[in-house]
Structures are given as C-alpha cells and as structure tokens.
Amino acid sequence: MIQENELITFILCLGALFFIIINYGKLKSLPSLKIFLISFTLFTMGWFFTVIEGLIFEELFNLFEHLCYISSSIMMFIWTLIFFKKRGGNEFNRDN
C-alpha cells in the first residue's frame, strides 16, 4: 500500500528535479555539477522505489531503494571530497 507522505516526498523530489532541469544552464557554474546531480537523481530514485515497494515486490524494491541511497551518498561524498581538495581555488568563489 502506498503511503501518502512517501508519495508527497517523491513528488517534491520530482519538483526539485524539474527545477534543476529548467535551470541547468544557470547551475553549470556549480563545481562538479554532474556528480551532484547524479547524487540527487539517485536519491529521487530511492524515493521512487519506496513508493513502488508499497505496490509490488516489496523486498526487491526495498533493496533497490537502499542501493540507490548508498549510491547517492557515495556520489555526494565524492562531490564534497572534490570540493575539499580544491579548497581555496578562485573557481569555487563564484557565487560570493
């Protein structure tokens, strides 16, 4: 059975993803943008599987959900590492 709060969170994720797509050009100056976006997309996919698991193949989609979360956190960790390594470079002071 689909839980309403999970569905709402998934819709909010889709909304944020839509915002990213329409503002992709403006976001290009965000360093390592692709890694950051992959992380968010995987996070959204995790929520998609959370919703789907309420309908069919609960265990399988639950596993997919958590695999998406770990992939998302790995990407986020890589993104922050890249930032940390290049700390102090002018290229990252772009939005100040």
Binding site: I70, M76, F77, T80, F83, R87, N96
Partner: peptide, 17 residues
Amino acid sequence: LTLLSLSIILIGWKNQF
C-alpha cells in the same frame, strides 16, 4: 558516508559559497 560528507562541509569549506 553522509556524516563524512557533512563533516567535510563543516570543517573543510571556507569561503566556498
């Protein structure tokens, strides 16, 4: 991993944004 990322953001990032 998320905690590590958060720690990096809190400790390592100065003047990035």
